[in-house]
């Protein structure tokens, strides 16, 4: 019984380190689950009569979900005084960018077969696609400046730029809302979550 006391002194520190080491790989794998599930469905021929539409909807929804999870990291840290949310925030943001690129690629490749006039026509004439395209541009800018070099280089400007994530989220939600025909429940849920996160940040900023 006595012999255990010295090892117990060191145990918490060792566990925490191990957990920290595991954090990123685990989150990385979890972020790949939506992709894995799409591939499984596709392999089992389960994408239905209109696979292009199915992949478009899937990638769009996971972009929004991933973005909202990313945006939840700062409030989580604030509410619970946890440190880990900030350690995985960049990875989550880059996964958001990964899913939005799959979404965009589906649009230009499978939906429009790279026909430039059709693609530009949609972006210019269809408001929901205009907004979606702008949101994609914002996410592109955030992804490009997500490295440590940019953080150091842009200083306070970096923070301002990356608040644009909220702009992208709002754009994505409006994009979703404008394409829905009648059932607004899912985009409204995302809007609710986004508003809550935004207000949390706003209150923290004003304090």
């Amino acid at each position: 019984m006595n012999g255990g006391s010295s090892s117990r002194l060191h145990a918490p520190a060792g566990d925490a380190t191990r957990l920290r080491l595991l954090l990123k790989p685990v989150v990385f794998l979890v972020c790949l689950l939506p992709l894995a599930s799409l591939i499984m469905t596709a392999v089992q021929d389960g994408l239905g009569a209109n696979p292009v539409e199915a992949i478009t909807a899937w990638s769009g929804q996971w972009t929004l979900r991933m973005l909202l999870v990313t945006l939840a990291m700062s409030p989580l840290r604030q509410w619970f005084a946890w440190r880990w949310p900030l350690q995985i925030r960049r990875m989550l943001g880059l996964f958001t960018f990964f899913y939005v690129c799959l979404h965009f690629l589906t649009f230009v490749w499978f939906d429009h077969a790279f026909l430039l006039m059709d693609i530009l026509g949609d972006i210019i004439k269809k408001p929901y696609i205009t907004v979606g395209f702008i949101a994609w541009c914002v996410l592109l800018a955030l992804a490009v400046t997500s490295n440590s070099y940019s953080v150091r280089r842009l200083r306070r400007g970096w923070q301002r730029l990356h608040r644009g994530a909220y702009l992208a989220a709002l754009g994505g939600i409006v994009h979703y809302m404008w394409l829905v025909k009648a059932d607004y429940s899912e985009p409204m849920l995302y809007l609710g979550i986004c508003t809550l996160l935004f207000l949390t940040r706003l209150v923290a900023l004003l304090r």
């Binding site: 596709a42 994408l47 992949i55 077969a113 059709d118 269809k126």
Partner: peptide
């Protein structure tokens, strides 16, 4: 107002996933 009506995606035949996508 929200989508072009100039073209359509025809769902026909027994297509594989790759055939549908392309």
């Amino acid at each position: 107002p929200r989508w072009s009506q100039a073209k359509e995606r025809r769902i026909a035949g027994e297509r594989t996933l790759m055939e549908s996508l392309f």
